[in-house]
């Protein structure tokens, strides 16, 4: 892809891209998020970890405006996107979202999946959109699958195509919702290495993940979510290596026991 050459990752903090402040989300009577604060800076990778049902996915869905928050605010580039006066479509086109179950459109070929938003939403000419999509596909090694339909692809290939679809619109931030959870173990690697590559290129990423080893490698910040609040956050070496909170230690012990770290 012909994206402007991304700056090298630096240790100095960039400007804030995404900021969640005191986010509250309730489903019926069940409070899922209890007042969550997360900040994602430019070129930064923030990993949300925590048990199933801890609210990781919900937070991502709130940020991507796929859910309405019940309190608190979320800013994208300094704009309060939870303000009902803001056009949500305008906000959503600035995010790239990748789902756990890929969610490719089954009635479209891979390349059509990728060019859909550039053509329809961003008004890019079909030929140009296709060229860019082909360049993307070459980068992720799926050139020969461009005109295949999703059901002809393996899970890993589908998820890589879904990631290509998400970054084809050059989003300000990428929201990754447990992108490897639905994959067979031997297919996890190819997807993770693609995400790693995107991170190295400087994409701003907020991701929910169960892959602790991956979070340790790639994330700049790890946030441990427990019962709808962020119990602990910091660099991976601290949160995953020397957690302060008892619940974090408990969670990590269970992961280690399951042979996942």
């Amino acid at each position: 892809m012909t994206q402007p050459v991304p700056p090298e990752r630096t240790t100095s903090p960039g400007s804030v891209v995404l900021r969640c402040e005191n986010v509250v989300k309730v489903y019926g009577d069940v409070p899922v998020l209890h007042g969550v604060d997360v900040t994602v800076r430019e070129h930064e990778v923030v990993a949300l970890i925590g048990a199933s049902g801890s609210g990781k996915s919900t937070l991502l869905r709130c940020a991507g405006l796929l859910e309405t928050v019940d309190d608190g605010q979320i800013w994208l580039d300094g704009e309060d996107i939870t303000d009902p006066r803001v056009d949500p479509d305008q906000v959503r086109r600035r995010f790239g979202v990748v789902f756990q179950a890929y969610n490719l459109f089954p009635h479209m070929s891979v390349v059509d999946n990728i060019t859909l938003a550039p053509r329809i939403v961003h008004g890019i000419a079909p030929a140009a959109a296709r060229d860019e999509a082909m360049a993307l596909l070459e980068r992720i090694g799926l050139t020969d699958k461009a005109d295949s339909y999703p059901d002809k692809l393996s899970g890993g290939q589908q998820q890589r195509a879904a990631i290509a679809r998400a970054i084809a619109v050059r989003p300000r931030a990428l929201l990754l919702d447990e992108v490897t959870s639905a994959l067979d173990p031997e297919l996890v690697g190819e997807v993770l290495s693609l995400v790693r590559e995107l991170a190295t290129q400087g994409l701003t990423i907020l991701m929910a993940t169960h892959e602790m080893g991956f979070a340790k490698q790639v994330a700049d910040t790890v946030c441990f979510l427990d019962q709808g609040v962020i119990l602990e956050s910091g660099p991976p070496s601290q949160v995953l290596g020397a957690p302060v909170e008892a619940r974090t230690r408990q969670f990590l012990t269970r992961i280690v026991d399951a042979g996942r770290l």
């Binding site: 509250v24 209890h34 019940d70 309190d71 608190g72 605010q73």
Partner: peptide, 10 residues
């Protein structure tokens, strides 16, 4: 969450 909704939410 006994404080009720914030001013922004209201």
């Amino acid at each position: 969450m006994t404080t009720g909704p914030s001013a922004v939410e209201l």
